[in-house]
Nucleic acid binder design. Structure first.
Lengths: 163, 163
DNA sequence: GTAATTGCAAAAGATTTGCAAGCGA
DNA sequence: TCGCTTGCAAATCTTTTGCAATTAC
């Protein structure tokens, strides 16, 4: 889908709920769409928006992000560093992506498929709990960090870990 | 398992890593064990510990919780309200419990089984990502809130939602 | 005895709020 | 025009840090 198309769709959503289309809101939405893969923090969004709209204030960015979160356009997530991050929800899927969080390099990879359909049914069946959303994150070591590790240990030393 | 037994086990773990057994640490551990189901925030832990050990300071509680988190005795989680919460890890299972978070009443129920074994294998296989831990939360409406909802709507009105 | 640990107070971040001015519909 | 929005600064809330005094081993 084209960027403009996505922007328009979100603008439509705002309008339909009676919210005004201000340049601050539009710029923030564009920044989020252009950094879809990045899990930006509020401050990062602020800095990026400020590049194009220098008068904007931090508080406005927080308010826009809050609004988009309420409208389910973004999802606020917390990976454990001090700050909340914002994940754009896919236009078609109502669910948050799954994440692979590398504890060595801090990189976050996304799994866009929904792997939880059958588990949601199980929750419904066993707990009588109606699922509206879910969150699945894996922590561990990504393939490129594993490669670096192997690289570092090469040389046939075949060493054992000692405490 | 008895409480004292669990406390001893954790004390052993501290000692083996060269940490000292202070009354502040012991009291904090006891409080966490006695509120295993509660997902306490740092402040809540602080207040509970303060009841038995009034001289303790907030900073100490944060430091103890950090330490227990590092030793994998508790797991720091963030459900999206402003503050981090602490979940005791089961003595046998290395993984964090799954959670059913009710968006109506805010209650958090735990699933103690590990439902993710096969998905972890898939992550390993498809992404070359070695999983060390995971997190699975479902948001939705719990059975008792659904019941309250039904109760409220009874009387055969059979109404439709209007915006 | 000595290094780890603590309590306090201050600092640091992240986020929210009050309010007068500005702007979109 | 009118009420929603904004920018700023101050306030709030959570968490961290520096440091001298204390304590477990």
């Amino acid at each position: 889908m084209m960027l403009t198309e996505q922007v328009d769709r979100i603008k439509e959503r705002l309008k339909s709920k009676g919210y005004k289309l201000t340049p601050q809101r539009e710029t923030t939405i564009r920044v989020l769409l252009e950094h879809e893969k990045d899990h930006l923090s509020a401050e990062e969004v602020f800095l990026l928006v400020k590049e194009r709209f220098p008068e904007i204030g931090m508080a406005t960015v927080y308010r826009v992000l809050d609004l988009l979160n309420e409208l389910q356009i973004v999802q606020k997530v917390n990976f454990g560093d001090g700050a909340a991050r914002f994940d754009l929800r896919a236009a078609n899927s109502p669910h948050l992506h799954h994440h692979l969080i590398c504890t060595q390099c801090g990189n976050v990879e996304e799994i866009m498929e929904d792997w939880l359909v059958s588990l949601e049914k199980r929750v419904e069946r066993e707990f009588g709990f109606t699922v509206t959303d879910h969150r699945l994150d894996f922590q561990g070591v990504c393939s490129s960090c594993q490669m670096k590790e192997r690289e570092k240990n090469k040389g046939g030393k075949n060493c054992q870990a000692v405490s």
